[in-house]
Design a protein around this nucleic acid. Structure first.
Lengths: 226, 226
DNA sequence: TTTTTCGTTATACAACGCGTAAAGAATACT
DNA sequence: AGTATTCTTTACGCGTTGTATAACGAAAAA
């Protein structure tokens, strides 16, 4: 099975080199040039492993690890230049699983990646087509339709709706939804939810005032029904 | 099924010898006298196998392999003279699948070719005519028309549009598109896409500001609709 | 009824993504 | 060799999206 690996590095040439090295070894890669972007992509979908360059412009390795580790237990291999030795140690203490020093040897890097992948349960296959009543969501192709009519959604709206469809019928609490869509640290911002629920209803409900899909569970959260 | 083989060699006599040997064994051959020309032909259409001579004038074997392997996983057999032994080892490390030493034995060469062809899924038949709505693309002849009106495209534009037509209706992410058109290592260069999407729109859209064919999926990528 | 929660709209703003033009570099053509 | 085309790279303005806050009426819970 092919593993998906996220490369977080600000240097385009190293990024390219890493991508080619890993592609050649049969991995699927995704890239980010800043820590922030890396976190975003990590929140967006699942990776089996992360290659994290130290010395990113917008965030220290430790900060990245702390933020990322809140949600996931994906193995993270730190790539560091020799001169930021102390950063490397800090990163390892903060939860990095392994490290590789620049300039790195391709074979060694791949060996380390494989070793770290072995420790972790393989990524569960993602359900690609969600169907609830007349609503269909093709996740990889980002197609949402109700009775074969296309619905255009922004990324956050899409993610929210996806969470709903994956948990159809259950009552979902505010904080659970916030965590699922926005990540840890947003569990108390219920006003975000109100705004986005409203936007979603405008797009998917025939009568947004009398919602058929997204039902309010007052004091609790919402329940998605087909 | 007959396999197509690309011969990259600068020596005309060896080229001729190889061509005759392979033709006799029932293969279809194409030739290139420089590495550059080889890459070009490889980008232009698919080969089932490549015979690569080391010691080309314009590029080392390793360079060729690195450039070629960005896009394809076609097996490559290296043909080397005894004296460039170190080049051969480097080429194998860079991803060559096999090697043959000059002067070669015809039967051995053919045996090795067949062995390497066995490893690889047979070349899927390429769809030669793509039709989406009123748009038609004759792939081998590189002709694109909308309502029988010819559209003139550059190679990259053509490749991009081809990828779109082959994946009509799906939302295609930036990195997926970049990988499909530019190859691994360019998955993060979204500005390339912006420029070429714009150029394509100027050529195929009636009103480039209000695109009908290429729709933007903000934050995700693009979706091609007929 | 009183209190709490929710829906809706409006707003301002920052961040980001996108479209576009245009210059520079590489490449192909003649 | 010189010219034209194509590709790469940079820069800037603009629109979309997401964040954050506020206000008010409606609905639900106490």
């Amino acid at each position: 099975m092919t593993s998906k690996i996220l490369i977080v590095d600000d240097d385009p040439s190293i990024r390219r080199l890493l991508a080619m090295t890993l592609a050649f070894a049969g991995f699927i890669t995704e890239m980010a040039s800043t820590a922030k972007e890396g976190l975003k992509k990590g929140a967006y979908d699942h990776f089996d492993l992360i290659l994290l360059d130290l010395g990113l412009p917008d965030m220290s390795g430790v900060q990245f690890l702390e933020r990322y580790r809140q949600d996931e237990q994906t193995p993270i291999i730190v790539v560091s230049a020799i001169h930021d030795e102390s950063d490397k140690i800090a990163a390892l203490n903060a939860g990095a699983d392994d490290y590789v020093t620049k300039p790195f040897n391709a074979d060694e890097l791949i060996a380390r990646i494989k070793a770290n992948l072995r420790r972790v349960p393989p990524a569960q296959e993602v359900l690609t087509l969600l169907v609830v009543g007349t609503m269909r969501m093709d996740v990889p192709n980002r197609i949402v339709s109700i009775e074969d009519e296309l619905i255009k959604l922004t990324p956050k709206e899409f993610k929210l709706l996806r969470v709903f469809m994956e948990n159809q019928g259950k009552a979902l609490t505010h904080s659970w939804l916030l965590k699922a869509v926005w990540g840890v640290g947003y569990q108390h911002e219920t006003h975000y939810l109100r705004v986005f629920i409203n936007q979603l209803r405008q797009k998917i409900e025939t009568d947004p005032a009398r919602p058929k899909w997204i039902n309010t569970e007052s004091g609790i959260g919402y329940r998605f029904l087909g």
